[in-house]
């Protein structure tokens, strides 16, 4: 007797692809948590990965970029902040 797979219903979960212990450079919260203004992690509180290698909550970074003193620089390395297209 042969057993053959006809259909397979798989389940997977996604996570932000960042090292386990890395935290947001602005709010210091882990990336599977949210920025201070959000309650629900995941797509609701997305992540921005900078070309410089620093990652932030999108909400945190936008708040920073909107301040005059930021001058569009990464708050960690003071390079111009450009994020990786997703």
């Amino acid at each position: 007797m042969k057993v053959k797979i006809k259909s397979w219903i798989a389940v997977a979960s996604w996570k932000w692809d960042v090292p386990e212990d890395e935290v947001c450079g602005i709010c210091r919260v882990q990336f599977d948590g949210t920025c201070p203004n959000c309650r629900f992690p995941g797509d609701d509180c997305a992540l921005l990965v900078g070309k410089c290698g620093h990652s932030f909550h999108m909400h945190c970074l936008l708040d920073w970029i909107n301040t005059e003193s930021s001058r569009g620089l990464c708050p960690m390395c003071r390079q111009k902040f450009e994020y990786v297209e997703q």
């Binding site: 797979i5 006809k6 259909s7 397979w8 219903i9 798989a10 389940v11 997977a12 979960s13 996604w14 996570k15 932000w16 692809d17 960042v18 992540l47 990965v49 990786v84 297209e85 997703q86």
Partner: peptide
């Protein structure tokens, strides 16, 4: 991009 995927085989089923 920026996401990674983990299988949850305990929840999978098939025909």
């Amino acid at each position: 991009k920026g996401k990674k995927l983990m299988w949850r085989h305990a929840l999978a089923h098939c025909v």
